[in-house]
């Protein structure tokens, strides 16, 4: 299922992605500005699979995309993000971040952040990371009297709050 968003000239838009699926965000007018966020928590045998394509079709556009996912139990988290900047789209800034936190040994993660850049006057970057909750973070909270479960819950809550 593909959901399409269009951001027009001088428009500012905030898009919140709430469920798995494919999303295409087109920045069609000069000065379009978009903030895309998505937080996901996959438990049991759930599969979270989110594809976001950010397509810059006009100059002077800006996009900031942040996807965060937590995988528990035997869940799978998959993020595919693609920034596409057409020719003659100068002065474009686009950033993509994919962060995945795994809570169990059986949880799986896949992160695919792509870039396709055909203009030169751009600032474009992406970052992806996949990790467990660092032991030090847990230790700190537990040394303050929290149980491990409570400490994990707190960290996950903080991680997903955007």
């Amino acid at each position: 299922m593909l959901t399409v968003f269009e951001v027009h000239q001088e428009e500012k838009k905030v898009i919140k992605i709430e469920e798995s699926g494919e999303y295409l965000v087109k920045l069609v007018g000069s000065g379009a500005d978009v903030e895309i966020t998505g937080s996901f928590r996959a438990i049991g045998k759930e599969k979270t699979d989110v594809t976001v394509i950010i397509h810059h079709q006009a100059p002077h556009t800006r996009a900031n995309t942040t996807l965060r996912g937590v995988g528990e139990d035997q869940a799978t988290v998959r993020f595919v993000g693609r920034i596409k900047i057409d020719e003659k789209c100068g002065d474009t800034n686009s950033f993509l971040t994919e962060r995945i936190l795994l809570l169990s040994d059986d949880a799986k993660a896949e992160a695919i952040p792509d870039l396709e850049i055909l203009s030169d006057d751009v600032k474009c970057s992406h970052a992806a990371s996949i990790s467990r909750i660092p032991a030090e973070h847990l230790f700190y909270l537990m040394s303050r009297g929290l149980t491990q479960k409570a400490a994990e819950a707190l960290i996950v809550e903080g991680f997903l709050a955007l």
Partner: peptide
């Protein structure tokens, strides 16, 4: 899941 994976790219 006991891993540290990082990816960064800039253009």
């Amino acid at each position: 899941s006991h891993v540290q994976i990082q990816h960064e790219a800039t253009v």
